[in-house]
């Protein structure tokens, strides 16, 4: 086993993040020499990465760098071609994934009412209960829309419902893949508030964004991905002021990096 690329976050940005929640046994998340290839092309190359239980980790990098693949490998939506992903020493399986949830760039809502979308996951986790559903919808500001078809909500409302539905499973880890890339600033802010509240309750957040402002507002640490490799994993403060790699610097400066 090669030494993991451990970054000590305890001294700085992460220190004021919440204490580890009930999901502490899932951590650290360790990617050991993880690679992924499809159709003969290597898309993720030998990634070693360790993430702690606390705070929000943001994954950044140019389009096509492999951010979404990395997120899916962590969540177990796809299996690595090489290497291992372990959560607190446990291999990735349904037992682990059931304690996590993911929000996608384009919300995948069932063709049903708003309420039925929440009921779906409550039933799935064996706790269908109208009171709990009302609480969840209230929290997401969607109570007034409960009986509406989910797919007729506005884009922002749809993503809020997707967030509420993901959090209804009470996950220890919440993945988000560019959750606000299609949203206006006001809707973006609401999503960020919900994410922050979840983090403060002890939910680990791992998300992808191209929105520099959002990254600065939410990130405790940053993983920078380029051409299928993790070039840098630093505390947010360090990353935004003194990125270790020139590619990260160029990326933030808005330069095209090759």
């Amino acid at each position: 086993m090669r030494p993991a690329n451990v970054v000590d976050l305890r001294g700085d940005a992460a220190s004021d993040a919440s204490a580890p929640g009930a999901g502490a046994d899932l951590f650290p998340l360790v990617l050991d020499d993880v690679s992924f290839q499809a159709g003969g092309t290597v898309l993720i190359k030998g990634v070693d990465l360790t993430l702690p239980a606390q705070g929000a980790t943001v994954i950044m990098g140019p389009n096509g760098a492999g951010k979404s693949l990395l997120l899916r490998l962590m969540h177990g939506l796809i299996a690595p071609s090489g290497g291992t992903v372990t959560w607190g020493g446990m291999p990735l399986g349904e037992a682990v994934r059931k304690r996590q949830a993911m929000v996608f760039q384009r919300p995948v809502l069932l063709r049903r009412s708003v309420a039925a979308n929440i009921d779906f996951v409550l039933r799935l986790r064996g706790r269908a209960d109208p009171g709990r559903r009302r609480e969840i919808l209230d929290h997401a500001g969607l109570a007034a829309h409960a009986d509406q078809p989910a797919r007729l909500l506005s884009g922002g409302e749809q993503q809020r419902l997707a967030m509420a539905r993901a959090l209804a499973t009470e996950p220890d880890v919440l993945f988000m893949d560019e959750p606000t890339s299609n949203l206006d600033p006001a809707s973006t802010l609401v999503i960020e508030e919900i994410a922050k509240a979840a983090r403060d309750r002890g939910t680990k957040i791992i998300f992808i964004t191209h929105d520099m402002g959002q990254a600065r507002r939410l990130a405790d640490d940053v993983v920078f991905v380029h051409k299928g490799k993790v070039l840098e994993h630093s505390p947010a403060e360090t990353f935004f002021t003194q990125p270790a790699s020139t590619e990260a610097g160029d990326y933030m400066a808005g330069k095209i990096i090759l």
Partner: peptide
């Protein structure tokens, strides 16, 4: 729906019904 269902760990039978 596949990725979302996989993320939620929806069992196959349940998936068919939904």
């Amino acid at each position: 729906y596949a990725e979302q269902f996989r993320s939620f760990c929806v069992p196959t039978g349940r998936m068919m019904v939904e």
